[in-house]
């Protein structure tokens, strides 16, 4: 498998840092299962994609599916660390209008804090 994930909690927000490829198959499945498991115990997730060089339409589908489930359950997932390649793919597919994207992890966490205030 070419995707590694590391989870930590910062100011009450769960941050998932991904490294590798998010593609159709084992990688997408593992990301989906990890996020679903976390959403059972937290409503605030920041997905840091700064280590992701590559995302395909299967990976995008995974992100959209988990995001939709999270929102329906009253939770939220914010994105940060997007390289130009992933930004381009989100733009081409119009998914840039779906996700909240932040330039830095600190900004994404702060956005959750502002929402909670």
């Amino acid at each position: 498998m070419t995707l590694k994930m590391e989870t930590r909690v910062v100011d009450g927000v769960t941050v998932v840092s991904c490294q590798g490829r998010i593609v159709f198959g084992e990688e997408g499945t593992e990301l989906r299962e990890t996020l679903k498991r976390l959403l059972a115990s937290t409503r605030q997730i920041v997905l840091n994609l700064s280590g992701v060089a590559y995302i395909d339409s299967g990976g995008l589908g995974t992100l959209v599916g988990v995001y939709s489930s999270a929102r329906a359950a009253g939770a939220d997932i914010k994105l940060t660390g997007l390289g130009q390649r992933i930004r381009d793919v989100l733009q081409i597919t119009k998914l840039v209008t779906v996700f909240e994207v932040y330039d830095s992890e600190a900004e994404a966490i702060a956005a959750f804090r502002r929402g909670a205030a």
Partner: peptide
């Protein structure tokens, strides 16, 4: 067309569109 509002939240169906764009 995966860009249509009714398809934006679909978890599949973007592959051929992406190929044509790239």
């Amino acid at each position: 067309d995966p860009k249509r509002p009714e398809n934006v939240f679909a978890d599949h169906g973007r592959g051929v569109y992406l190929i044509r764009q790239l």
